[in-house]
């Protein structure tokens, strides 16, 4: 039970960190200054969520391990785990692509987080519930911001509509995984599938306003939640972990 709770917390943290890392690639390169600030803000929120979750996981792990083990910290969890140990969904690690892909991915993910954190607020583990409650305010903003962009680009110009369609085509296959429970979720009695109908309803409504089609049933890629990732994750971690791994054991 305790191990599953740790794994689940790491899964939530990894989602937030990897998407935060991806979004941060826009910092200084956004399409217009106001949106450069907005996407950086979302990145900061996600990294903040990741930190709270890693800190909580570290606390649990240290308590379980007893004192003879080296202390686990938010940074050892982020910087010293390998590709196969990360449990983020495939969706979060996909390249940032163009602005259409970035806002669509954010929309898919924020919609998911929005329903997830609402459920988690009621969860028996009060620490996770508290993190969910705090994060929900941020996620509500991310959802509003990303919905508006999906609509604006979907119903903007021919080019922006074409790019949104391409983004849907590219990313839809990674949305199924959000709702497939990993073993640690099953053991904790958490069923992400229970949110799928709400998620689909929200996505359909926004797509309709954006003049976009919800794709027909297509094959969904999975594996990230259990550590079987796309080839992108290795490169993300190579960059993210470079300094820590080059100079191990230092304070920064």
């Amino acid at each position: 039970m305790s191990e599953s709770l740790i794994n689940y917390t790491l899964h939530l943290a990894d989602n937030a960190l990897i998407l935060g890392q991806r979004n941060s690639e826009w910092c200084g390169h956004g399409p217009v200054l106001e949106q450069d600030i907005a996407i950086t803000n979302i990145s900061l929120d996600l990294i903040g969520q990741a930190r709270s979750l890693y800190q909580y996981a570290a606390e649990k792990m240290n308590a379980a391990a007893g004192k003879e083990h080296p202390a686990v910290t938010e940074d050892t969890l982020a910087y010293y785990r390998t590709e196969r140990e990360f449990k983020n969904c495939l969706l979060t690690e996909q390249p940032r692509g163009d602005w259409a892909q970035t806002v669509l991915r954010q929309f898919f993910f924020s919609t998911y987080q929005y329903y997830l954190y609402q459920q988690l607020q009621q969860y028996a583990d009060t620490n996770l519930a508290a993190i969910a409650e705090k994060s929900l305010k941020e996620v509500s903003y991310h959802l509003r911001w990303s919905s508006e962009w999906v609509i604006r680009l979907g119903d903007g110009t021919d080019e922006s509509n074409r790019r949104m369609k391409e983004a849907v085509n590219e990313l839809w296959r990674y949305t199924g995984e959000l709702f497939v429970p990993a073993p640690y979720e099953k053991e904790l009695g958490i069923d992400p599938g229970s949110m799928q109908a709400d998620w689909m309803k929200k996505v359909s409504a926004v797509f309709e306003e954006a003049t976009l089609q919800v794709p027909e049933k297509i094959f969904m890629q999975t594996g990230g939640k259990t550590g079987v990732h796309s080839e992108h994750l290795g490169y993300i971690l190579t960059e993210l972990q470079y300094v820590q791994r080059t100079y191990p054991g230092c304070e920064w």
């Binding site: 941060s24 910092c27 200084g28 200054l33 950086t40 940074d75 993210l240």
Partner: peptide, 25 residues
Amino acid sequence: ISRAPSLKRKAILLAKVQDEAGHGL
């Protein structure tokens, strides 16, 4: 930003660069 050596430093750096964007505005 992508290579900041700790999560705290990453957050500080992101916030800093974001401040610069705000100053530009």
